[in-house]
Simulated scan of single mutants.
Amino acid sequence: MALDEPYRLDKRRVRATFERAASGYDRTAVLQHEVCDRLLERLDLVRLSPARVLDIGTGTGRAARGLRSHYKRSLVCGLDLSEAMLHQARRAAGWWRRPVWVAGDAERLPFADGVFDLVVSSLALQWCDDLDRTFAGVRRALAPGGLFQFSTFGPDTLRELREAWRRVDPEGTHVNRFLDMHDIGDALVRAGFADPVMDMEMMTVTYAELGQLMHDLRAIGASNANAGRPRGLTPRSRLQALEAAYEVFRREDGSLPASYEVIYGHAWAPNVPVVGPAGRPERFIPIKPES
């Protein structure tokens, strides 16, 4: 399932915005940290003793460190598109039995078939253009009987900002498009996963002014990376119009809400190995502890 052309992501821009955001990411990513922790808590309900674990979109490594603590005998690998994010992850991981860090794209996983028993991804799948391709790669990298557990954003995420922009610039592409959880579940089935389970919760972050929300989005690297985004600087007059349009959402307590539809899902790899097509030109990374 690929995104429509105006919403196709410019991966170079995605990487660049996360590179810039890496050093200050953890100071701003309060919601992202909360969702990550809630995702990891769900693993307490699963009886699993994985030998190798992959964290896709590890960022500064919060989930990878949590997985390393949860599965003390496991080898944990954290993959991210941004080298600067991985630098922060290395700094925070310490020296003893630290995870393996790999720079790579979630849509082109650089791992051999069936190497992981558990794959986790917290709020990274929304940065993938083609979910079918992404899930097929995860399915290939999972061993038979392995578990894929993830969180991502649904279509009501930043609905206030999207509506305000629609009033100011109806034809513009200003906010990412997020897939419905039923579409995500269908993509899991198409990729060959078994027993997919999806659920959703709404979370709200409040601000005194719209400028604070815009600052936080930039600070975590969540800038507009859509192919159809407007080019150049946004005129001050248009930003003022956006602020006025957002005011309709101001609450009685004086705060401005920013809504996030958080989707959680998990699915299992059937007890049948998946072998990728013969003759692939990719070179795969051996997974072993860092020295």
Rank of each mutant, 00 (worst) to 15 (best):
P230D: 01
P99V: 00
P50T: 02
L147G: 01
E34M: 14
V76F: 07
R280G: 12
D186Y: 07
S237L: 08
F249H: 06
D180T: 06
R52A: 03
A269Q: 05
A225H: 06
I220D: 11
R68Q: 13
V46W: 14
A112P: 03
E252I: 07
E209M: 07
P196C: 05
S223T: 13
E252S: 08
Q240A: 05
G211W: 07
R98G: 09
R68L: 08
A51D: 04
A51C: 06
V248W: 11
F193W: 11
G276V: 03
E19I: 01
R133D: 00
L147P: 03
A267E: 06
P6T: 02
E163I: 01
A143S: 14
L39G: 09
R283G: 09
R42F: 10
H174P: 01
F284H: 08
A227W: 15
C36R: 08
Q32H: 15
E247D: 12
G114H: 05
G154Q: 05
S291G: 13
D169P: 01
D199Y: 12
D80A: 03
E201F: 08
E163N: 04
V102N: 04
Y71V: 03
T234R: 02
S23Q: 12
P110K: 08
G57N: 04
P170F: 10
G228Q: 00
L239Y: 14
L67Q: 00
R91L: 12
K72R: 15
L67Y: 01
L239V: 09
F150I: 02
R68W: 06
D129I: 09
W127T: 01
G154E: 03
G192Y: 03
N224L: 03
A51R: 15
D253F: 12
H266K: 12
R15E: 15
S291L: 07
V119S: 12
R133L: 12
V102Q: 04
K11Q: 12
R236Y: 10
A124I: 00
T58E: 07
G228S: 00
L142D: 07
W127R: 11
I184P: 04
D183L: 11
S255Q: 11
R167I: 02
D199C: 07
T173M: 02
A141V: 04
R229K: 07
L45S: 14
E201S: 07
V274M: 13
K72W: 15
S74K: 11
S291H: 08
L233W: 08
L118T: 04
I220H: 14
L40Q: 11
Q149F: 11
V30W: 15
G137F: 09
S69C: 12
R251Q: 13
D183A: 08
G137S: 07
L31P: 10
D10V: 00
M214R: 15
N271A: 06
V100C: 12
A227S: 05
W101F: 10
T204K: 13
V248S: 09
G232S: 03
D55E: 05
R108W: 10
D186M: 06
H215P: 01
K11P: 05
R159F: 13
N224V: 02
P257W: 14
M214H: 10
L118W: 15
R15H: 15
V205M: 13
A219F: 08
E201A: 05
S223W: 12
D180R: 13
